[in-house]
């Protein structure tokens, strides 16, 4: 069992999650040439080593996350929310908590 530290729920079994896909894929603009879409939809790096990939905590908070994982050992190096805005909000919340801690505990 792979144990994935969900940024929202803590460490959980990977059976709670579903694997999305390779997170390094960047989709082109809607009006980009067909070749650019062909690359994004069909061509893969297929790394044997550390890669970024998306997972969804389907049987938990249902949030999408980006996991940095080794495809040969299954070791997980980092996890962050997939959406930058959510990540920022989490960081902001942490800052607010930190400030309130400092205020309460001078």
């Amino acid at each position: 069992m792979i144990r994935i530290p969900c940024p929202f729920c803590g460490v959980r079994d990977h059976s709670e999650f579903v694997y999305g896909s390779d997170a390094s894929v960047e989709y082109p603009a809607l009006d980009a040439p067909a070749e650019a879409w062909l690359e994004a939809v069909f061509q893969r790096e297929n790394i044997d080593g550390v890669q970024f990939e998306t997972w969804q905590h389907l049987h938990g908070c249902r949030m999408w996350i980006v996991v940095e994982r080794d495809t040969t050992t299954h070791e997980i190096h980092s996890v962050r929310p997939a959406h930058r805005g959510v990540e920022q909000a989490l960081e902001d919340e942490e800052k607010v908590r930190e400030l309130s801690r400092q205020r309460d505990d001078p």
Binding site: M1, I2, D13, H14, S15, V18, Y19, D22, N46, D48, Q51, E53, W55, T71, T72, T73, H74
Partner: peptide, 13 residues
């Protein structure tokens, strides 16, 4: 096993 892997070993789920 649903997730990408080069490991020649399976997982419990």
């Amino acid at each position: 096993d649903w997730y990408k892997s080069y490991a020649q070993r399976g997982n419990l789920p």
